[in-house]
Computed example of a mutant assay.
Amino acid sequence: MSDEGAVAAQQHRIDELIVALEALDDPRAREPARELLQVVLDLHTNGLARLMEIVSAAGVMDEAMIEAFERDAGVSALLLLHGLHPQDLPTRVSRAVEKMRPLLGAQGIQIELLDAAEEAVRVRVAGRLQGKHNSVGELQQEIERAIFEAAPETMRVDIAGLPDVNVHELHFVPHHTETASRTEAGAQ
């Protein structure tokens, strides 16, 4: 399993366990479990914050180090969870959009970042969808996934221009029709 896959599986399991914890009927079991979770999270936050201070004080917190943190799915997810990521939300979203630009461009779609905030990330798309995606819905899911991975604290992703994206339709032309057209054209 890839690093991203392992992190996603762990995050999914955490979500499942939180739901199970909240579903407990016995408050004597639920409250200490919540408190335990909070104390462990606080311990990790304080330790990671101190680690970031040490790395920064050592003078190694440069652009290369920040990029290494971002590339490592586990480290990035941990820093995001504890509010310690060295890049702010607009920078992370801008980088996510920049990463998507060539992939979407190859599919006939242009993407532009309009605004990045916790309340909402706003992007605009335009073009004629062709290639990998079968629908505008798949395109929307890919854009949302990339942005939420970069900025999980954002509440929603608004995609302007999505209803206007044209979908390239592939048409099957039977071989005999194509051959007949060429034959007729050659006879003239």
Rank of each mutant, 00 (worst) to 15 (best):
H168M: 12
M61Q: 13
P163C: 02
T91L: 05
A8T: 00
R182N: 09
N134E: 15
T91S: 10
Q110M: 04
E169H: 10
I66A: 04
A58C: 03
R128D: 01
G47L: 09
A185N: 15
L17M: 07
S2F: 01
E31F: 11
L17A: 05
G137P: 03
Q130F: 09
L129I: 04
A8E: 08
Q11F: 01
E31S: 06
V121W: 08
I18S: 13
V121I: 12
A23T: 12
P86T: 05
A77V: 06
E53R: 04
I111H: 07
I159V: 10
L103F: 13
V157D: 04
A23E: 14
D3Q: 05
Q141P: 02
I66K: 14
R156V: 00
V93W: 01
Q107S: 11
V55I: 11
L81E: 14
E184T: 09
A20L: 11
V75T: 15
V165G: 09
I18N: 11
D62A: 07
L41A: 06
V60T: 07
A64K: 13
I159W: 03
E178N: 09
A160Q: 10
L43D: 05
A20M: 04
R28Q: 14
L113W: 06
A151R: 05
G186T: 11
I111T: 01
R30M: 04
E178V: 07
I66Q: 11
D164S: 14
A77W: 00
G105I: 04
A49V: 00
Q130V: 05
Q141M: 11
G186E: 13
E31A: 13
G137D: 13
A49W: 03
S56C: 04
V123R: 11
R156T: 06
T45Q: 07
E144R: 11
I66G: 07
F172M: 05
E67D: 13
M52K: 06
K99D: 15
N46R: 14
R30Y: 04
V39D: 10
P152T: 02
L84M: 00
A126R: 15
A126K: 15
L79D: 08
D158A: 11
K132I: 10
D15Q: 12
M52W: 00
E119C: 01
D158R: 08
L81F: 11
L80R: 12
